[in-house]
Design a protein around this nucleic acid. Structure first.
Lengths: 340, 340
DNA sequence: GATTAGCACTCGTTAAATATGAGTGCTAAT
DNA sequence: ATTAGCACTCATATTTAACGAGTGCTAATC
């Protein structure tokens, strides 16, 4: 167990290191207003903190830097859980409201805002329509051989796909196909739509089948193309200002990783956490991000579950401020109304 | 005017420098099979080439590197205009065909392909719907207060916008509005749609106006939101392999510039050139790209004018190969059929 | 017994000193 | 006109030395 003074020292080391990115020495600490002890006393405690694995030395004659264990302790014990500053949240909400009522643009704006507020890179993932369910299918002919299939989800999202017929299809066949799909598939999750259409085709009577099979299969094939959830990266250039990313060895893996949209999407989708979660350094298990910490959270827009937002900075990130800002942003998003 | 030998030497210097990224010395050149002269002779010619501004020395005791003027001469006189290798084009066409019939995906694939082929970064800009014209408007109600407006262009592109009514609108009013829009606005360019709707509203009789004004204005406001032309960046990580981008001073401006999607889009749209065009070094007028050369070209997909594709590499890029590959790719795209 | 002053020691960083060698320009010989 | 020869230049690499922030330990002090 840590003594009170050790706690103070640990906190001071981390706070100092977060600000300067330089190893912190005992003399520097002893000069702080909140630490009234001599450097020798502090040195003794530092040795103890090091034994406990909370801090470490880059080399013999340097000061100490926090270890991952130290950061974890700091985040778990020394960062107060999100206290929402009403005034600040209101201001954020206002800025979001001004940008647009279009959800996509709002999300981007939120990511940019969070990025500006913290100077870290942010990633925002839009809603994953795969998990939404079908509310309505419709069809609109374009010309003799082409038409647009409209898919509306229960969350009010609309997608369209252009389909192309092999040959002319009678209007009433189209109409009937759409009616069938609406009758039988409303409520199906978008991800399963493809399979379910296949099942419905199988159920058709032989007479019907000849008529509708083509049309159904056509729709099935286009519906199978999943539009990836929209992904937005905000403040990517912020990374250039971080002292730990001033060399190509560290910068390159980071940038290469962050630019791989698909991988990034999968990673965000795989995060199990519903509320604000902090992953420190190698905890995230991603080699390219081993020197990064990530604050993630799911968010809701206008009350509806929407997506995931993440903030990526160096392990030496300002956790207190980061967690705080993340809380403010998701609260502001939650309160933002799409209509009215 | 250049002597034959000077031409040979200039070409050798550039070819060598393109490969090694190192200043080329007279001794190195004299050892080449295609240059049978002594290093001293070559030195004399090099001095002349330098006087003409075609090559320059980084410092007194280094070899020579091509100047921008030198590259320009090289590209204009020493790079043979695109000769299309039928077999290679066929192979590319095949690879494109396999990826998808969806134009968006095809374009991405083309950019990636070009990037793999050349090891440079590529940017592909999709069609700019602003310049296309309206072929059809349609409306599909979602519920009492919302609906989807479908906009189809002459090029067969479809866009949709969700609109929200203040209050319930009678179906026949909607129907009539859409009929009106179709009657009067088909053929209008998408970019002008907003203005044109305004004009049409002004023309309405007073009686009609009360009925349709709201609806029209609603559509007008959503139509005004221009969907930006789709932009795709391929092979961004290739830049990390270029020796001239191994330092943050050069890398950072490049990456920051390339990541600014809007600016990039505008830049690509502002390029006046219809056919393959090479911009060397500072010619492009962009500070962040002053050490880059760009090969750009408009492309057509399935015969229809589509967008712009660009290849960005260091000024020391392999122009011969780059121009060649660019030619192949746009030819392959031109031949790719979207339907069948 | 806890705290602090004092001091020898460590080791990464920086600066100056030196060596290396690729490449040039010029001159004189071919 | 071409080439061999040579003195000279200058970026780069290597070595050496000086510096100083910081530590751990011991002995004195509160």
């Amino acid at each position: 167990m840590l003594t009170n003074r050790q706690l103070l020292i640990l906190r001071a080391i981390i706070d100092d290191y977060i600000q300067t990115a330089q190893p912190v020495g005992s003399r520097t600490l002893s000069k702080r207003d909140d630490l009234t002890f001599s450097s020798a006393t502090i040195r003794n405690d530092m040795a103890d903190l090091e034994d406990m694995g909370l801090i470490e030395k880059p080399h013999t004659s340097a000061g100490r830097i926090p270890s991952e264990v130290g950061y974890r302790y700091y985040v778990d014990h020394l960062v107060e859980k999100q206290i929402i500053d009403e005034r600040e949240t209101g201001r954020l909400e206002e800025r979001l409201k001004q940008s647009s009522k279009e959800s996509e643009i709002l999300i981007r704006q939120a990511a940019d805002l969070l990025s500006d507020l913290t100077n870290y890179t942010t990633v925002a993932l839009g809603p994953n329509s795969q998990s939404e369910t079908l509310a309505r299918v419709d069809f609109m002919p374009l010309d003799e051989r082409r038409g647009v299939v409209l898919i509306v989800t229960d969350q009010g999202h609309v997608e369209h796909r252009t389909v192309m017929f092999e040959s002319r299809v009678a209007p009433d066949v189209i109409e009937e196909t759409i009616r069938l799909l609406n009758d039988r598939l409303v409520g199906t999750s978008i991800g399963q739509l493809k399979v379910r259409i296949g099942e419905e085709v199988a159920k058709l009577q032989l007479a019907q089948r000849q008529q509708y099979e083509n049309m159904m299969q056509l729709i099935q094939s286009t519906v199978g193309i999943q539009t990836p959830s929209s992904l937005y990266l905000g403040g990517k250039k912020n990374i250039f200002n971080q002292p730990e990313f001033q060399t190509l060895d560290t910068l390159r893996p980071f940038l290469e990783w962050i630019d791989e949209q698909e991988r990034l999407t999968h990673w965000l989708e795989s995060l199990p956490n519903r509320e604000i979660y902090v992953s420190i350094g190698s905890e995230n298990g991603i080699v390219a991000l081993q020197n990064c910490s990530v604050i993630t959270s799911d968010y809701t827009l206008d009350g509806k579950t929407f997506g995931t937002i993440a903030m990526i900075g160096p392990t030496r990130m300002n956790y207190r401020h980061g967690v705080q800002m993340m809380g403010q942003i998701i609260e502001a998003l939650r309160r933002t109304k799409l209509d009215e």
